[in-house]
Amino acid sequence: MIEILSNYLTGALLIIGSAFAVVAAIGINRLPDVYSRMHAASKAGTLGSGVMLIALAIYAQDTGTTLRALAGVVFFLLTAPISSHLLAKAAYAVGYPMWKGTVLDEMPPDSRIGADD
């Protein structure tokens, strides 16, 4: 009984996770600049691989594998925002252009504290 349930749950989580991965890939191709592409890659991409690892954790019968898969999910959820924030900060500091439809740039060069006004 519990095996039937875990089979159904694992299959559903696999499809959900790969659908998130596809959405992230479409977002990477369709969004206009690197800052908005980062939304797709770091949120939907991380969620996709995390959900598929949770599927593996549910499918695995022994405690060690389940715990390692869950530790991997926690690790990805911790590191993905750090790496993409660092990449966005580096791209912004170097001056890669934003999309021309961007409505708000909160750190334009002449608004920093101590700048001449």
Partner: peptide, 8 residues
Amino acid sequence: AAAIGFIA
């Protein structure tokens, strides 16, 4: 991330 999904 996609490779991790493949591995799972």
